[in-house]
Design a protein around this nucleic acid. Structure first.
Lengths: 223, 223
DNA sequence: GTCTATAATTAGATAGAC
DNA sequence: GTCTATCTAATTATAGAC
C-alpha cells in the first residue's frame, strides 16, 4: 500500500523530531560524562559541568539517567563497547586469535593502539580500581573479569607449550596492561615533559617495543 | 653547668607538650590525607573526612596547612621522601648505580618493591596526571622531571653502548613505570579478581619478571 | 522533553571562646 | 593549639510550568 511512505498518523513528525533530539541529548551527555569522569574521577566530576559541556542543563541528567551513578554506568558500558570496536578494527579482517605467538602479538599491538585512542577508558579504570566500592565491584564483574580470564588463560597455554617466557599470568596481565596504558593515561604529564605520546610515531614504536619485550624476538623473522 | 639537665625557664613543659601534640596532629593529618587523596582524588577527597580519620577536627587543616591545596602539596612532598627512603633501603649499602645492566636491574627491583609498599604514590600520580592543572605542573617540575631525566639519560647511554634493547627512552620510561606500578595501584581490583598483588611472593616474582623482560636474560648468569 | 526555580545536603574556610 | 559554631558557595536531586 502507498501509505508506507507517508508518516503514520499515530506518530506525527513532531514526536519523531523530539525523540531524535532526546537521543542527541543522551549521546552528548554520555560523551561529556566520559571526559569529566576521566579527568576528575566519579566524586570529583560535577553533573552541572557535564550538562554544560553537553550544551544542555543539569536536570537533564536525572531525566535521562535517573542519577549520577547510572550516568556513570552508561558511560562505562559505552566506553567498553568502543574499546571492543577499536580492537576489532585494528586487528583487521584476518584476526589470528590468541592461540599463537603471532596471534598474541597482534592482540598486544591492537590493544596498544586502541588504548591510545581511548585514554578515558584506562583513566576511569585506574581511578576506580584504587579503592573497593560498589562501582568497582560492578565494573570488575561486568567488564574486567572476562577480559582478565581471556588473557591469563591464553598466556597460561602459551607458557605451558614453552612458546613464551616462564612468567606467572597475573604478573603478566598487570605488567602488560600497565605498560600498554600509562603513556596514554598520563599523556598530559608526558606533554609537560616535552613528549607527545599520542603521536602515531610514538604509538607505533610503543606497540612494537612491547611485543618484543613481552614475547621476545620473533624467531620466524630471525631465520 | 648543672642547669643543662633542667628545663629552660623560657620554655616550660606545657609549651613543649603543646608543640609535641601539634606535631602529632600534623603528622596524623598528613597520613590521613595521603589515604583520602589516593582513594578519591584531590577534588573527591573531603577535608572533614581527613580530619576525622586523623582523630581531630576539620578546621585544624586550615590552621596547620592554610588550605586543602597546601595540605595536598605537603602530603605529596612527604610521600616522595618516603619513596626515596624505600628505594635506598631496598638497594642496600652496595648501590651499584645506574650505569650498568646490573645497576639498572637493581634499581628496577628496588623501585618495584618500593612501589608495592607505597601504593598511594602512584595512585595520586595517576589521578593528577590525567588532566593538565596547576597541581600537575607543580608535581612535574618538582618531582617527576628529575626522575624522568635520570632514567631516560641512563637508558640512552646503555642503549648507545648496545647493553640494552634498541628502544626509545620515553617509550621505555612509561612502559617500565606502568608495568611496575599498576599491580599495586589496582590492588583492590586484583583482590576482587582473587589475587593478592601485595603478597611478598607476588612482588618478588613481579620484580624478577620485569628485569628479565626489560633487560633480557642476564648473560653473566647464562655463562 | 526541556526548561526555571529551588530543596536538601555537603563542601572548604573563618570567627571567636578557651 | 584546639575546640564549637557558623558562613558562603557548591553539590545532586526534585517540582512544576510550558
Amino acid at each position: 500500500m502507498s501509505t508506507i511512505e507517508t508518516s503514520p498518523p499515530a506518530t506525527p513528525p513532531t514526536t519523531r523530531r523530539r525523540q531524535a533530539r532526546a537521543t542527541a541529548t543522551r549521546t552528548a551527555l554520555l560523551d561529556a560524562a566520559l571526559e569529566e569522569f576521566a579527568a576528575h574521577g566519579f566524586e570529583g566530576a560535577s553533573t552541572r559541568a557535564i550538562a554544560t559541556a553537553a550544551g544542555t542543563h543539569q536536570p537533564q541528567i536525572n531525566y535521562h539517567f535517573d542519577s549520577k551513578e547510572e550516568l556513570w554506568k552508561s558511560a562505562v558500558d559505552h566506553l567498553f563497547g568502543r574499546l571492543d570496536d577499536a580492537v576489532r578494527e585494528h586487528l583487521g579482517a584476518a584476526d589470528p586469535g590468541w592461540g599463537s605467538r603471532a596471534g598474541f602479538a597482534a592482540n598486544i599491538h591492537a590493544f596498544v593502539r586502541a588504548a591510545a585512542g581511548l585514554p578515558e577508558l584506562n583513566r576511569i579504570m585506574v581511578q576506580e580500581a584504587t579503592i573497593d566500592s560498589e562501582r568497582l565491584q560492578w565494573i570488575v564483574e561486568r567488564h574486567t573479569r572476562p577480559r582478565f580470564e581471556l588473557v591469563t588463560e591464553q598466556w597460561r597455554r602459551l607458557r605451558a607449550d614453552g612458546v613464551v617466557a616462564d612468567i606467572d599470568e597475573t604478573v603478566l596481565y598487570y605488567s602488560l596492561v600497565g605498560a600498554a596504558s600509562l603513556a596514554y593515561v598520563n599523556a598530559p604529564e608526558a606533554r609537560l615533559l616535552g613528549h607527545d605520546t599520542l603521536a602515531d610515531s610514538f604509538i607505533e614504536a610503543h606497540a612494537t617495543a612491547l611485543v618484543t619485550m613481552f614475547l621476545g624476538a620473533d624467531e620466524e623473522t630471525a631465520r
